[in-house]
C-alpha cells in the first residue's frame, strides 16, 4: 500500500496543488465572513473529492490496468484510496475547524460553543464524496460515476444557495451533534469501503 499512497502523493503534488490553494483561500474568506457556510462546505467537499479525482486520473492514464500486473490486491487498491481520502478529510476538516474558530473570535462575537458541532459537520461533509461516489466509480468507472458527481455537486450548490439566502441554514444551524454524526458517517464510510471492495473485482476489464 505504501507504493500506491506514494504514487498518489506524487500525482497530487502535480495535479492538485491548486485545489489546496483554493481550499486555503476559501477558508481564509470563511473566517472573515459572517455568513461563511458556503465557503466551508465547498472546501470540505473539495478536500473529500480529491481521492475521486485521483481515481479519475488513474483510469484515464490506465494505472488501474497496470496495477493488475503488480503484486497488489484489488482490496489494497480500494483501501489505499479510502485511506488517502480519510487523510484528506481529516486535514480539510481540521483546517476548516481552525478557520471557523478564528472566524468566531474575529467576526462572530467570540462564542466558541458551536465549534465542536461545526467540526463534526465539516468532517461528515468531507466524507460524503467517498461514501457516495467511490463504489460507483470502482464498479462502473469514471464516466458513469460522473453523473452522480454532477448530482452531488448540484445538491451542494443548491444547499449553498439556500445557506446564502436564509439564516435558517447557515452555521451554526448546520451544526451536527459530534457524538452522533461522526460515528454514523464513519460507519457509512466503512460500509462504502466494504462495498467498493466487493464491487471493484467485478468491474469489467
Amino acid at each position: 500500500m505504501k507504493g500506491l499512497i506514494r504514487k498518489d502523493i506524487y500525482m497530487m503534488k502535480t495535479y492538485f496543488r491548486i485545489s489546496w490553494v483554493i481550499v486555503l483561500i476559501f477558508l481564509v474568506v470563511g473566517a472573515v465572513n459572517e455568513k461563511a457556510s458556503f465557503y466551508y462546505i465547498y472546501s470540505c467537499m473539495m478536500g473529500g473529492i480529491l481521492p475521486i479525482s485521483l481515481l479519475s486520473y488513474d483510469e484515464k492514464e490506465r494505472w488501474l490496468d497496470y496495477a493488475d500486473t503488480l503484486p497488489v490486491s484489488t482490496n489494497t487498491i480500494v483501501r489505499s484510496k479510502y485511506l488517502l481520502g480519510l487523510i484528506f478529510s481529516v486535514a480539510v476538516s481540521v483546517l476548516a475547524t481552525i478557520s471557523y474558530a478564528i472566524g468566531c473570535k474575529v467576526s462572530r462575537g467570540g462564542d466558541l460553543s458551536g465549534v465542536p458541532g461545526m467540526a463534526a459537520t465539516f468532517f461528515c461533509i468531507s466524507l460524503l464524496p467517498a461514501i457516495l461516489l467511490m463504489p460507483v466509480i470502482f464498479k462502473f468507472g469514471v464516466e458513469k460515476g460522473r453523473i452522480l458527481y454532477y448530482i452531488l455537486f448540484g445538491m451542494l450548490f443548491f444547499f449553498a444557495a439556500l445557506t446564502g439566502f436564509s439564516d435558517q441554514f447557515s452555521a451554526p444551524a448546520l451544526s451536527l451533534h459530534p457524538l452522533i454524526a461522526v460515528p454514523v458517517f464513519v460507519a457509512l464510510w466503512i460500509g462504502s469501503l466494504l462495498f467498493s471492495q466487493v464491487m471493484y473485482p467485478r468491474r469489467e476489464r
Binding site: 500500500m1 505504501k2 507504493g3 500506491l4 499512497i5 506514494r6 504514487k7 506524487y10 500525482m11 502535480t14 495535479y15 486520473y57 488513474d58 492514464e61 490506465r62 494505472w63 488501474l64 490496468d65 497496470y66 496495477a67 500486473t69 503488480l70 503484486p71 497488489v72
Partner: peptide, 27 residues
C-alpha cells in the same frame, strides 16, 4: 514480471519516482 504493452503510469511521474513507487510495492 509482467509487461502488457506500455505501462499505465501517470504522465507526471519520472523514472526516479516510478522506482520509489515500486520500492513500496515489490518486497
Amino acid at each position: 514480471g509482467i509487461v502488457l504493452g506500455e505501462p499505465g503510469l501517470s504522465g507526471c511521474l519520472t523514472g526516479e519516482e516510478v522506482a520509489r513507487i515500486m520500492e513500496g510495492i515489490f518486497a
